[in-house]
């Protein structure tokens, strides 16, 4: 079964430019700094913009979120993109893996409890 993916683009300040809204609506974030709403993004954004090589994708698997609008487990990936006037921006893909990782969590929980 294919997983639902939301693709978001941000300018180099972290402001939301576009989103396909497959997983959560972003209307209220439009033209706002997404870093203020996502501590994950805040903690890696500067390094992604400054160190990520063009064409390279960096992945952060199994990110657990408690956001009211996005509860569950997600795989994040980022890549640099060119936006208006050749300015650099960031593409952020959020893939919903909640079902898969909830099962994994159940298995891991059981295995760890046996060892603890």
């Amino acid at each position: 079964m294919s997983k639902v993916r939301q693709t978001i683009t941000l300018d180099q300040r972290g402001y939301l430019l576009t989103s396909c809204d497959s997983l959560f609506p972003t209307e209220k974030f439009l033209n706002k700094d997404l870093k203020e709403f996502f501590p994950f993004l805040e903690s890696v954004f500067v390094d992604l913009i400054q160190t990520l090589e063009t064409g390279r994708i960096i992945q952060f698997p199994k990110v657990e979120t408690k956001h009211i609008f996005l509860p569950g487990f997600y795989d994040y990936s980022f890549r640099l993109i060119r936006i208006r006037n050749e300015e650099i921006g960031l593409q952020w893909d959020v893939v919903d893996a909640t079902n898969e990782y909830t099962d994994l969590q159940t298995e891991q929980q059981s295995a760890h409890e046996k060892e603890l």
């Binding site: 994950f40 952060f60 990110v63 657990e64 487990f73 994994l104 969590q105 929980q109």
Partner: peptide, 12 residues
């Protein structure tokens, strides 16, 4: 209660 973490959680 122990609940295993399977990836990463972030807060500030």
């Amino acid at each position: 209660r122990y609940i295993t973490t399977i990836g990463v959680k972030v807060d500030k």
